[in-house]
Amino acid sequence: MSSIQTKPGDLIRFDQQGVVGVVTMYRPDARNALSVPMLEQLAQIMGACDAAQDVRCIVLTGGDTVFSAGADIDVLSGHTAATYPDSINRRAFDAIRATRTPVVAAVAGYCLGGGCEIALSCDLIVAADTAQFSQPEINLGFIPGAGGTQLWATRAGLGTQARAALTGTMQDAFAARRAGIADMVVPAGALAAASLELAQDIASKAPLATRAAKAAMRAPWGAPLNAALEQEVALMSGLLASSDASEGIAAFLDKRKPRFEGF
């Protein structure tokens, strides 16, 4: 068994089921909102799983109630155009996308904003019938900053991408499956078992071959996607310096409708 260990108070939990590593985001009091410590721990655990020879597939989940309600607004409000590009908000997502080991996202309940970008960064998405997918950043005066303006299109095409990025519309599990965002939909009570079964099937294959298959499938991402992600970060960084973004964040925290002025 791998030497990866987590403690009861950690925001990321790890459990090993044979050669499958189960990584669980655990911040139930905040619907698994992505705080800086949580993102730091997630990047560390995903890297450790990728380095472990006896972890051949990873299940990434938030549990059977909620995947993640997105980034902590307090975390975003602390950033400027200069600090965002090198922040953990960005680096944690890079770590997930760079994982060579196949990753299955097990999604229940809210999968919003940064949480949705985490799921989209995985190789396969198993959705509970309670799952809700959305990129609601446009409603706060900025844009997704960790792949959300690009990764929907890699799965479901430009129309789905445009609707997600420009309207923040919520898609339930069945709509996500029809669009190609989710790979399968299962009853909520069967999510853990179905995700583990899929991961165990992948893990039963030759580990060098599964990593090679993942590398080959992601090769088309290459430079064009990387350049687009850099542009997304640059645009997001600029928006964080705008008055509209400050107003959107303040309105969210005050539970009122924002008053956007266009500067």
Rank of each mutant, 00 (worst) to 15 (best):
P224E: 12
A227S: 09
A188P: 08
I249G: 09
A175P: 00
A241N: 15
D183H: 11
G238L: 13
F142N: 12
P136R: 01
A241V: 09
Q150K: 07
A203T: 06
T154K: 11
A193R: 13
L229I: 07
G222D: 11
K214D: 02
T169H: 07
G145L: 10
V185F: 01
G168F: 07
L239H: 07
L191E: 06
V186Y: 00
M170Q: 07
A173M: 00
M236P: 08
V185E: 00
A215I: 02
I138H: 04
A182T: 00
A203G: 15
G189I: 03
A206D: 15
A164W: 01
G141V: 10
Q200S: 14
A153F: 02
I143R: 14
N139W: 06
G145T: 11
E247Y: 10
P187W: 05
S204Y: 06
S195W: 10
K214S: 05
W152D: 02
L158M: 10
A162N: 08
S237A: 15
R218F: 13
Q171D: 14
T210V: 04
A227F: 01
A199W: 08
G248L: 08
L196M: 14
M170C: 00
L239P: 11
A228P: 05
I202D: 05
L198Y: 13
N226W: 01
D172G: 02
T167V: 03
L166S: 13
P144Y: 07
Q150G: 03
L240M: 15
Q231C: 07
Q200G: 09
A182K: 00
S243E: 14
P136T: 06
P224H: 09
